[in-house]
């Protein structure tokens, strides 16, 4: 089956992003296709490369990056939600004249159309959030 994944909550505060990761990983292991993971609302914060969780805890952003690298998954952070919350890639940094960027490897910033497209192109769009 071809899945789209929507992550609506930030890392650590809420289990949604853990559940989304575990579902995505299990789906891949079972031979399903992940069309895209789309991060919305506070979910965009899963894409920061500046997180340093305690060493005995999971590293949520790094875990997404590794899963994406190994399986060629499209991780998309919503641009409107990202701009509000200070998630910035090099291009956005230039465009909005910021002095830094913080988007982790294998994530990209794009529009809400990518979420709608995931709804159109997949067999199931699965939402993780409240």
């Amino acid at each position: 089956m071809k899945f789209g994944i929507l992550v609506n909550e930030g890392p650590y505060t809420h289990q949604a992003s853990d559940s989304a990761y575990l579902f995505t990983k299990a789906a891949i292991e079972d031979g399903h296709e992940i069309f895209r993971v789309f991060f919305y609302h506070d979910g965009v914060n899963n894409g920061t490369r500046l997180a340093t969780p305690p060493q005995d805890d999971r590293h949520i952003p790094n875990r997404w990056t590794e899963l994406a690298k190994e399986n060629n998954i499209d991780l998309v952070v919503c641009v409107a939600a990202a701009q509000r919350r200070g998630m910035v890639d090099p291009e956005e940094m230039k465009r909005n004249k910021k002095d830094a960027n913080n988007l982790a490897e294998n994530f990209r910033i794009s529009g809400l159309g990518q979420l709608i497209e995931a709804g159109i192109q997949t067999d199931r769009l699965i939402t993780f959030g409240d």
Partner: peptide
């Protein structure tokens, strides 16, 4: 919370997709 506001933004963008 921001959910209603950001939901509406999704609807507005989604409207262009003729679904």
């Amino acid at each position: 919370t921001i959910y209603a506001h950001e939901a509406l933004e999704t609807v507005l963008i989604g409207a262009a997709f003729e679904q």
